[in-house]
């Protein structure tokens, strides 16, 4: 991602495309988009990633997190035909050079969170996913109430502490 951001490196973009495009498409389909719409939209999302690469700040979000936010915004735009109000950027802005140690730790925390997600029992992971696909219903949640997912909670807390640190 850094190579796309700093050098507009097309080879790096192709690598990113091959990993994320099928996932973004899967995300859009599970969110309710048709196959054709999801395909078209995924290309939009990947194009946006290229165009907004200079805004990517690895001390504030991992690549997956960043791609997710772009895909999510496109989903809202497309499936719900709504604008997406975003928080005001922080006053110190994205142009400050991120601290390398912060970047590494945030990356590690995000990867740990992903591993924790991948290791969840299928049913529990499906529950977290359904929240992000907007497919939650009362009955589904009721059926799943009380499942202890301690690992993910502690991972998020770690990520959060890191993020809090970023904000100081």
């Amino acid at each position: 991602m850094a190579r796309i951001r700093d050098a507009q490196d097309e080879t790096a973009f192709i690598t990113l495309f091959e990993y994320y495009a099928p996932r973004v498409k899967g995300f859009l389909i599970k969110s309710g988009a048709s196959e054709a719409l999801a395909e078209e939209c995924t290309q939009d999302v990947m194009t946006t990633i290229w165009q907004k690469a200079h805004q990517f700040d690895p001390s504030r979000a991992s690549v997956s997190t960043w791609v997710f936010t772009i895909a999510r915004n496109r989903k809202i735009d497309l499936l719900r035909r709504q604008r997406r109000p975003e928080p005001e950027d922080l006053p110190w802005g994205p142009e400050a050079e991120p601290d390398q140690a912060d970047v590494v730790v945030l990356q590690q925390e995000s990867e740990r969170l992903t591993r924790a997600m991948a290791n969840l029992p299928e049913k529990q992971r499906a529950l977290v996913e359904s929240a992000y696909f907007g497919n939650l219903s009362h009955s589904e949640i009721a059926a799943e109430t009380g499942l202890p997912l301690g690992t993910i909670k502690s991972r998020i807390r770690l990520a959060l502490e890191r993020l809090r640190h970023e904000m100081r």
Binding site: Y20, P22, R23, G26, V67, F68, T69, S110, M117, E166
Partner: peptide, 20 residues
């Protein structure tokens, strides 16, 4: 919010990819 966006990224990462 950053933490929840990170969960969203993890959802994307662990999702079954669709064929482009």
């Amino acid at each position: 919010l950053g933490a929840y966006d990170t969960v969203g990224g993890a959802v994307l990462d662990t999702l079954e990819p669709a064929e482009m």
